[in-house]
Simulated assay, not measured.
Amino acid sequence: MQQQLRNYYEILGLSRDASGEEIKKTFRRLARQYHPDVNPGDKIAEEKFKDINEAYDILSDENKRADYDKLLFGKPKRRFERPRVGFNRNSNGSSSNSRQAFETWKIRDFSPGTTKTAKVVSPPLRRDVEARLTLPLEKAYRGGRERIRLEDGRSLEVDMPPGMMNGQKIRLKGQGINGGDLYLKITVARHPFFEIQGSDIYCQIPVTPSEAIVGGAVEVPTIDGLVKMIVPKGVRAGQRLRLANKGYPNGQGSRGDQLVEIQIVIPPEPSEQELELYKQLRQVEKFNPRRNSIA
């Protein structure tokens, strides 16, 4: 069965001549729109999210995109060579080699002076195939049953193991062509908040100026849910705090850590009471961050 090539430009709503920056901006916009966290329980949005990530994985890589464009926009497709069937001797004793998958030769009937023609059919070729599957980070972490759609039109349900990594391959025995195997190559979709760094998970957390100065407990999202983290007194912008064993599974029975980078954020519209308190603080504070830069 001939597989129909998916048009990744149509999936992202882009033209063939879209620049790398246009592809990146469009992907980010669509990923936020269709992310499972934004559309809980919406299967259509979930499928759209997978398609968007699959398209971005190809179009964001110059080499992959060049190969894909050749296939999509007119590169002659490589012809499938049928397996050759050869015979050392034919019925009259001379040597011959077949150059086709289907060969005919003469065989003698029991009746004198008669011959019959028989067709030799080569058995279908067993072939392994590879398919891509894009998963949200949470699904790759937890695993579970996932329905996949293949380009040849088949739909399969697969029990995905927990802790899948980007680039990992899963073998589905007998699901390839003519009894071959199907290899699913896993792509873990980019997450709007978390970033996987090896077996560690990195994120940024904003805190107010008062939280940074006084310290205290703040809520931090993790891949397992919200946890409380103690912000030390006098924490600096850009400082990284560590949540032990809250990272990604490393495949050896343990987990990495979650690295939380502090961002100090000024309130955009402080109330009158807050402004008054900041004014009072301004009158009594002795810290001058520009002291060393003044000549």
Results as ranks from 00 to 15, higher is better:
Y9R: 00
G225Q: 04
P209M: 06
E138N: 11
Y202H: 15
K119Q: 05
P267Y: 06
S96L: 14
M164R: 11
S199C: 09
Y56D: 03
R154A: 08
L5R: 13
I201C: 12
Q100G: 09
Y8V: 01
K139W: 04
S254V: 11
I264T: 05
N250Y: 10
I213P: 00
Q168C: 10
N288S: 09
I186D: 11
F80H: 09
A66V: 01
N245K: 13
V260T: 08
S15C: 12
G180T: 02
L14S: 01
E10L: 06
Q239C: 08
D159Q: 14
N63P: 00
Q33I: 01
I44V: 15
Q258M: 15
A189Y: 06
A18G: 00
P268F: 06
D67I: 08
F194A: 09
R171G: 07
S254C: 08
K246E: 12
A244V: 10
P268C: 05
I213N: 01
D69P: 02
E151G: 14
S96V: 14
N292Y: 07
P36M: 05
P249R: 08
P76H: 03
P162T: 10
K48D: 02
Q197K: 14
S96E: 13
E219V: 06
I107S: 02
E21N: 08
K279F: 09
P136W: 08
K43N: 04
F80M: 13
G234V: 06
D224P: 03
F193W: 04
E62C: 06
M164K: 12
A18W: 00
R127M: 14
P268D: 11
L133K: 02
R291G: 03
P76I: 05
P124T: 09
N39R: 15
L133E: 03
A237K: 11
D51W: 00
A101I: 01
P76L: 11
I148D: 07
V227C: 05
K70W: 01
Q33H: 06
T222D: 02
K24Y: 03
G238Y: 03
D181K: 02
E46L: 14
R290N: 13
K43L: 05
